[in-house]
């Protein structure tokens, strides 16, 4: 996978989390993933389509997800209920939307699908492209961003 495709997601991830969750956000070590198994309790999957396509998966523990939802809602959320799920899913939507805005500045004008949440560990998520993982360390805990995107070859115009 083109490493350039993950950078917009890191930048957008840091900025969006700082803005709506608050606190500092630090980027961890980038690593390559061969197969996608959810290693976290909560995964938010967003599809990307256009000249760059594939999936982006945001993985976090349920404790982190609940803390993030609390911060977004401005109330102390104890349970990971429907509203908390919606908040964390929307975080995935916002990061992805802001990231594809950055991608469009490099000439890749893409669209995203509504986020879907997968719960449970060791669930296999099929991705077409090899993927890169980068953890973001937030005040609520770790958010793993897995980016499995590839450029679609442009049609030959002779």
């Amino acid at each position: 996978m083109n490493v350039a495709f993950i950078n917009p997601f890191i930048t957008a991830g840091v900025e969006v989390i700082k803005q709506i969750v608050g606190g500092e956000v630090e980027q961890g070590q980038l690593s390559i993933r061969t197969a996608i198994f959810t290693t976290q309790q909560v995964s938010i999957v967003v599809g990307v389509s256009g000249p760059v396509q594939g999936q982006v998966i945001y993985g976090l523990s349920q404790v982190t997800a609940t803390k993030i939802a609390s911060a977004m809602m401005g109330i102390q959320q104890v349970e990971f209920d429907e509203m908390a799920i919606s908040a964390v899913s929307e975080l995935g939507n916002m990061i992805s939307g802001n990231a594809v805005m950055l991608l469009s500045e490099s000439g890749f004008v893409c669209d995203i699908t509504p986020p879907t949440m997968v719960r449970g560990m060791n669930v296999e998520i099929a991705t077409q492209a090899p993927s890169l993982l980068v953890p973001l360390y937030t005040k609520c805990g770790k958010v793993d961003i897995t980016v499995a995107l590839s450029a679609v070859p442009s049609p030959v115009t002779a």
Partner: peptide, 8 residues
């Protein structure tokens, strides 16, 4: 009101 902000 969208997370998508690209010019297009």
């Amino acid at each position: 009101c969208s997370a998508l902000g690209q010019e297009q």
